[in-house]
Amino acid sequence: MGAYFSEIFRGLQSLAIGMGITFREFFKPVVTVSYPMETLKMSARYRGHIELVEDEKGQPKCVACGMCQRACPSGCISLASESVEYEVEEKGETKTKKKKVLTKYNLNFTTCSLCGQCVENCSFGAIDFSKEYNLASSRKEDFHFDLLQRLKERNS
């Protein structure tokens, strides 16, 4: 009999403690962020999709070596390049040299797993993570990024 009543009493007591906690929480400030109205700043190391890095002249640093393409586990990077001749002054004389110039750098973000292998494998520091996270669309094509185009838009 004693155990019967003591269990009821302890039960009610535990319920009262629980209600006390939610009562206190009720008066504490709200912790959420009203997302579309307020946004958070992403941390410095946040990994968004990749973005081409430009040099001082506003051109992509990329030399089109294709390391990122090879390192990518999901094959979401495709790039193309062409050779262009250019002239350099060397020891007083002009020489023509060839170099690869990036003509296309497409990222298929639908399959990207944001592992960072491409950025890690780039020996030239030519790609970096963007801080963009407001990416939502019902169309697949919206996630096929032309990174060269985006670089131009950023500069203009």
Binding site: S43, R45, R47, F129
Partner: peptide, 27 residues
Amino acid sequence: LDILERVTGSRLTYCYYRFGGLYNDID
């Protein structure tokens, strides 16, 4: 997750460890 995001760059599906060490040091 905020702490981990600052270090690893992601909140859920981390890819932080590398063979032999880490992707980057703690901040």
